[in-house]
Deep mutational scan, measured.
Amino acid sequence: MDLSALRVEEVQNVINAMQKILECPICLELIKEPVSTKCDHIFCKFCMLKLLNQKKGPSQCPLCKNDITKRSLQESTRFSQLVEELLKIICAFQLDTGLE
């Protein structure tokens, strides 16, 4: 393996790690329209609304089981920016390397 191939692999590993961190624990995809709970867990807005609409009253956070309500959800613009920038990095990496 030459040096450039090694560096490509390192970049790919970093991108994969970042994708894992920014993954919704419910749908296991890159978070879309991130919302945070009072317990500071981040999920896709759609995933949380789907969870909350399944029953009346408070639901439980899928990660820590604390009570959550629609009102307690906060849009997470910082995470939204992180996801947007990661998508740009992924696109640039794919253009530069031809890898997916």
Results as ranks from 00 to 15, higher is better:
44 C>P: 01
96 D>Y: 00
34 P>A: 04
100 E>D: 14
6 L>I: 05
25 P>T: 09
67 D>A: 15
31 I>S: 03
21 I>N: 12
60 Q>L: 11
90 I>T: 12
92 A>G: 07
20 K>T: 13
44 C>Y: 00
15 I>M: 14
98 G>S: 04
12 Q>P: 03
9 E>A: 12
99 L>F: 03
40 D>E: 11
3 L>P: 12
64 C>P: 01
86 L>P: 03
84 E>Q: 12
51 L>P: 07
56 K>I: 10
50 K>E: 15
78 R>S: 04
45 K>N: 14
82 L>R: 00
39 C>S: 01
50 K>T: 05
87 L>F: 09
28 L>P: 02
78 R>K: 05
91 C>P: 04
74 Q>R: 15
16 N>D: 06
75 E>A: 11
76 S>N: 11
50 K>N: 11
26 I>L: 15
95 L>R: 11
89 I>P: 00
60 Q>H: 10
63 L>S: 10
62 P>L: 11
40 D>G: 12
33 E>V: 10
43 F>L: 09
45 K>T: 14
3 L>V: 09
35 V>P: 02
65 K>N: 14
19 Q>L: 12
72 S>C: 13
52 L>F: 09
29 E>Q: 07
80 S>P: 03
36 S>P: 04
38 K>E: 13
55 K>P: 13
94 Q>L: 08
47 C>W: 02
58 P>A: 13
10 E>V: 07
78 R>P: 14
44 C>G: 02
96 D>N: 00
83 V>F: 03
55 K>M: 06
62 P>H: 10
92 A>S: 12
20 K>I: 08
75 E>P: 14
85 E>A: 10
75 E>D: 07
91 C>W: 10
24 C>R: 00
62 P>A: 08
68 I>R: 02
29 E>D: 14
13 N>S: 13
23 E>A: 12
67 D>V: 04
47 C>F: 01
43 F>V: 12
74 Q>E: 09
42 I>L: 05
26 I>T: 08
19 Q>P: 02
26 I>S: 09
81 Q>L: 10
2 D>N: 08
96 D>P: 01
5 A>P: 10
57 G>W: 13
16 N>Y: 04
7 R>C: 13
72 S>I: 11
68 I>M: 08
84 E>A: 15
32 K>M: 08
68 I>V: 04
64 C>F: 00
70 K>Q: 07
6 L>H: 07
100 E>V: 08
41 H>Q: 02
47 C>R: 00
75 E>Q: 05
36 S>A: 11
49 L>M: 15
49 L>V: 09
93 F>P: 01
91 C>Y: 09
25 P>S: 12
19 Q>R: 11
31 I>T: 03
21 I>L: 08
74 Q>H: 11
2 D>V: 04
16 N>H: 10
61 C>Y: 02
66 N>T: 12
2 D>H: 07
79 F>I: 02
46 F>S: 05
30 L>M: 15
38 K>R: 10
90 I>L: 10
60 Q>E: 12
21 I>V: 13
8 V>A: 13
15 I>L: 07
16 N>T: 04
40 D>N: 10
86 L>V: 04
80 S>C: 13
13 N>K: 10
67 D>H: 05
13 N>D: 12
57 G>E: 11
47 C>G: 02
64 C>S: 01
61 C>W: 01
75 E>K: 03
37 T>I: 13
68 I>L: 09
37 T>K: 01
94 Q>H: 06
18 M>K: 00
68 I>K: 00
18 M>I: 05
100 E>P: 05
76 S>T: 04
60 Q>K: 12
34 P>H: 03
77 T>K: 14
56 K>E: 14
16 N>I: 04
13 N>H: 09
53 N>Y: 03
27 C>R: 00
58 P>R: 07
